[in-house]
């Protein structure tokens, strides 16, 4: 058992998470972030670690449908939650419309920020607060792209928002 700064013993905690539709029973240390749990313990390395401080958005995942920075989230605090990562967006071989749109609009270069961008964009569409391009830009501002693919990312998100607007009268 590990010890705290003050020397007392620290227990691991049992948590239940549904990750990409699959129920998991896990034991975690209190200091394990959701990002490290995904990458280091569950080999779900699609979610990226950019800054590890909430400043870049590479680690964005959906928790109970809402986009958050997994690097600033302690896994132990998400007991019972549903987590969706980039690995969980496609339905079998069929890519998620946002994944399709990123390919269609050439919305990445190196691809490092892309899983976070796509999860963030899916969250943006769910939230329903963006329509115009300037709104997409503002509400995608939590995702930094060092390659500067921003214009094409906005194109991709705009296209998906347009498809949805067409689908729901």
């Amino acid at each position: 058992m590990e010890q705290s700064a003050t020397g007392s013993a620290i227990a691991q905690h049992a948590i239940a998470l549904t990750i990409n539709g699959q129920a998991r029973q896990l034991r975690v240390n209190p200091w394990t972030t959701l990002l490290d749990l995904l990458r280091e313990n569950l080999a779900l390395t699609g979610t990226k670690k950019g800054c590890d401080h909430g400043q870049c958005g590479a680690c964005t995942v959906l928790v109970d449908g809402k986009r958050i920075n997994s690097c600033l989230t302690l896994a132990v605090m998400k007991d019972g939650a549903e987590v969706t990562t980039i690995e969980g967006l496609a339905e079998g071989e069929a890519l998620h419309p946002m994944q399709e749109a990123f390919i269609e609009h050439d919305a990445f270069q190196c691809g490092y920020c892309t899983p976070g961008q796509i999860c963030s964009a899916v969250g943006l569409v769910n939230e329903g607060h963006a329509q115009a391009r300037h709104e997409i830009r503002e509400l995608m501002s939590g995702n930094i792209c060092r390659c500067g693919a921003y214009t094409n990312i906005v194109d991709a998100v705009e296209a998906v928002l347009g498809q949805n607007a067409g689908a729901t009268p």
Partner: peptide, 9 residues
């Protein structure tokens, strides 16, 4: 303030 992800948390 912050970003959409941060404001959600």
């Amino acid at each position: 303030g912050a970003s959409p992800q941060l404001r959600n948390a």
